[in-house]
Deep mutational scan, measured.
Amino acid sequence: MGSVRTNRYSIVSSEEDGMKLATMAVANGFGNGKSKVHTRQQCRSRFVKKDGHCNVQFINVGEKGQRYLADIFTTCVDIRWRWMLVIFCLAFVLSWLFFGCVFWLIALLHGDLDTDYKDDDDKSKVSKACVSEVNSFTAAFLFSIETQTTIGYGFRCVTDECPIAVFMVVFQSIVGCIIDAFIIGAVMAKMAKPKKRNETLVFSHNAVIAMRDGKLCLMWRVGNLRKSHLVEAHVRAQLLKSRITSEGEYIPLDQIDINVGFDSGIDRIFLVSPITIVHEIDEDSPLYDLSKQDIDNADFEIVVILEGMVEATAMTTQCRSSYLANEILWGHRYEPVLFEEKHYYKVDYSRFHKTYEVPNTPLCSARDLAEKKYILSNANSFCYENEVALTSKEEEEDSENGVPESTSTDSPPGIDLHNQASVPLEPRPLRRESEIGSRR
């Protein structure tokens, strides 16, 4: 089982795998120059863009038009607004034209077009017409509009002379109601789609790998820009990579689940303020055997998904993003964004995407760390350097704002901070800030 798991979770494809794949392509008759073999020097295209759209195009789909027309309502909801407006206008105009032609044909076959009612006051002739005051196609078209929109100006009306005319008036009224219901329903469904809710759900630009509770963890940050909550919010993550099976089958995008606390339930989050999602790199993680150097040379993509129900409509929305291997910062942490004021908490989104480097973060893999092949620094050293990194950030910001350097908390000259780390230190809580992250 261990060997199978290692093969499945191998992220960085070796040169031997690339040569094996190329040999397979030639042997199977696919070596026509169009096949692409992804190596370390040639990274694959992003499968999920940063804005959440999937970078996929469908080609050679059989009976595409028929399949889309069979699900016309979903098609109308998914198309762009400009095409929705075109369909909206065409549906009414074509129905008016169709029934206008029908009423014109009825008048033509009944002989109503030969009668001039402007110079004739004989009401008996008017009563013999199928539709009064309809003696041309324009008049028939206007009567069709008046019937379907129930305008009723009063000059044109159907008589009991022709039952077919009466039937067409009733039929057009029913068709008009159906068109109204369909168009209004599609427009309302399109307006109520929770897709735009994703514009106020954000992911951090970069993911980070750092120590948390004595273990290497992959972390990324999510935030909600609205005050309205995302009900039943939960997160998922998958690692996408290519691999070759033991039988020699090439899988271009193998999807591997990344555990973010599904078993323990901590994948469900209360997204009021930005939260750091934590994936513990343990023996079940696809990143277990990867060191910093392996991450730098790897070719994979981590897709992160945030799902929840919109509070206003109770409709489920899904926000997506992805991180390539070069977008994962090893040995970094996110800057705090949640600050405790006197009577409330304040979230500073200008710090949302910012990170700071944490010294002495192990550069080895989580496996080597678990097997004690890498000796961690003293816990006080880690905490102290973590505090120094934050303090230096604040000093830089104070210097930019014009604060005198004498007010900063610099260490005395001639003292090495790293050498001082081995000395037991008193706890130094942050002056006014605390970061709330997901705790395992």
Results as ranks from 00 to 15, higher is better:
Gly2Trp: 02
Arg8Phe: 05
Ser13Gly: 11
Glu16Val: 05
Glu16Leu: 04
Asp17Asn: 04
Gly18Pro: 06
Met19Arg: 07
Lys20Val: 04
Ala22Thr: 13
Met24Ser: 12
Gly29Gln: 10
Gly29Tyr: 03
Gly29Glu: 15
Phe30Asp: 15
Phe30Thr: 15
Asn32Tyr: 05
Asn32Gln: 10
Gly33Leu: 08
Lys36Val: 14
Val37Phe: 05
Val37Glu: 15
His38Trp: 04
Gln41Ser: 10
Gln41Met: 09
Ser45Phe: 07
Ser45Pro: 08
Phe47Ser: 04
Phe47Pro: 00
Asp51Arg: 07
Asp51Trp: 02
His53Ile: 09
Asn55Arg: 08
Asn55His: 04
Phe58Ile: 09
Asn60Tyr: 05
Gly62Thr: 10
Gly62Arg: 04
Gln66Tyr: 10
Arg67Val: 02
Arg67Phe: 06
Leu69Gly: 11
Ala70Asp: 07
Asp71Gly: 13
Phe73Thr: 12
Thr74Trp: 03
Val77Ile: 13
Val77Asn: 07
Val77Glu: 07
Ile79Asp: 12
Ile79Asn: 09
Trp83Gly: 05
Trp83Asp: 03
Val86Trp: 09
Phe88Arg: 02
Cys89Glu: 02
Leu90Ala: 04
Leu90His: 14
Ala91Arg: 04
Phe92Met: 12
Leu94Arg: 01
Leu94Trp: 02
Leu94Glu: 01
Ser95Gly: 09
Cys101Thr: 09
Ala107Asp: 01
Leu109Gly: 15
Leu109Ile: 12
Gly111Asp: 07
Lys118Glu: 00
Lys118Gly: 00
Asp120Thr: 00
Asp121Val: 09
Lys125Thr: 15
Ser127Cys: 03
Lys128Pro: 08
Lys128Tyr: 08
Val131Arg: 02
Ser132Ala: 05
Ser132Arg: 04
Ser132Leu: 06
Asn135Arg: 07
Ser136Tyr: 00
Phe137Ile: 04
Phe137Asn: 02
Thr138Ala: 12
Phe141Ala: 13
Ser144Gln: 00
Ser144Thr: 03
Glu146Val: 01
Glu146Thr: 03
Thr149Val: 06
Ile151Trp: 08
Gly154Arg: 07
Phe155Asp: 08
Phe155Trp: 08
Arg156His: 02
Thr159His: 03
Asp160Phe: 01
Glu161Gln: 14
Glu161Tyr: 02
Cys162Asn: 02
Pro163Val: 06
Ile164Arg: 00
Val166Tyr: 04
Phe167Tyr: 05
Val175Pro: 01
Val175Asp: 02
Cys177Val: 08
Cys177Gly: 10
Ile178Tyr: 11
Asp180Ser: 15
Ala186Asn: 12
Ala186Arg: 14
Val187Gly: 05
Met188Pro: 07
Met188Trp: 03
Ala189Asp: 10
Ala189Ile: 15
Met191Pro: 12
Val202Gly: 06
Phe203Asp: 00
His205Ala: 10
Asn206Pro: 04
Ala207Glu: 00
Val208Arg: 01
Ile209Asn: 00
Ala210Thr: 11
Arg212Lys: 15
Leu216Phe: 08
Leu216Asn: 00
Cys217Leu: 08
Met219Cys: 10
Gly223Ala: 10
Asn224Ile: 07
Leu230Met: 06
Glu232Arg: 08
His234Leu: 03
Val235Lys: 00
Arg236Gln: 12
Gln238Ser: 10
Leu239Ala: 01
Ser242Gln: 13
Ser246Leu: 09
Glu247Arg: 06
Glu247Tyr: 06
Glu249Ile: 07
Tyr250Val: 14
Ile251Lys: 12
Leu253Lys: 10
Ile256Phe: 10
Asn259Cys: 09
Val260Ile: 07
Ser264Asp: 15
Ile266Arg: 13
Asp267Ser: 10
Ile269Thr: 07
Ser273Met: 06
Thr276Met: 09
Ile277Glu: 01
Ile277Cys: 10
Val278Cys: 11
His279Lys: 00
Ile281Trp: 01
Glu283Val: 11
Pro286Leu: 00
Tyr288His: 02
Leu290Pro: 02
Lys292Cys: 13
Asn297Val: 09
Ala298Glu: 08
Asp299Arg: 05
Asp299Asn: 03
Ile302Trp: 00
Val303Arg: 02
Val303Trp: 00
Leu306Met: 04
Leu306Ala: 10
Glu307Met: 04
Glu311Ser: 08
Ala312Gln: 11
Ala312Val: 03
Ala314Phe: 09
Met315Val: 07
Thr316Tyr: 11
Thr317Gln: 09
Thr317Asn: 08
Thr317Asp: 08
Arg320Met: 06
Ser322Thr: 04
Ser322Ile: 01
Leu324Asn: 12
Asn326Met: 04
Glu327Asp: 10
Ile328Gln: 00
Gly331Leu: 01
His332Thr: 01
Glu335Val: 05
Val337Asp: 03
Leu338Phe: 06
Glu340Pro: 07
Glu340Trp: 09
Glu340Gln: 05
Lys342Ala: 09
Tyr345Met: 09
Ser350Trp: 04
His353Gly: 06
Lys354Ile: 08
Glu357Lys: 04
Asn360Cys: 08
Thr361Tyr: 03
Pro362Gln: 00
Asp368Gln: 08
Leu369Val: 15
Lys372Ser: 13
Lys373Cys: 13
Lys373Ile: 10
Ile375Ser: 14
Ser377Pro: 15
Ala379Gln: 13
Cys383Trp: 05
Tyr384Trp: 13
Tyr384Asn: 14
Ala389Gly: 15
Leu390Tyr: 09
Leu390Arg: 15
Leu390Glu: 15
Glu394Ile: 07
Glu395Phe: 10
Glu400Gly: 13
Asn401Gly: 08
Asn401Ala: 12
Gly402Tyr: 11
Val403Asn: 12
Glu405Trp: 06
Ser406Val: 10
Ser411Asp: 13
Ser411Phe: 07
Ser411Cys: 10
Ile415Ser: 10
Asp416Val: 06
Asp416Trp: 05
His418Trp: 05
Asn419Cys: 13
Ala421Arg: 10
Glu426Gly: 04
Pro427Lys: 04
Pro429Ala: 14
Ile436Asp: 15
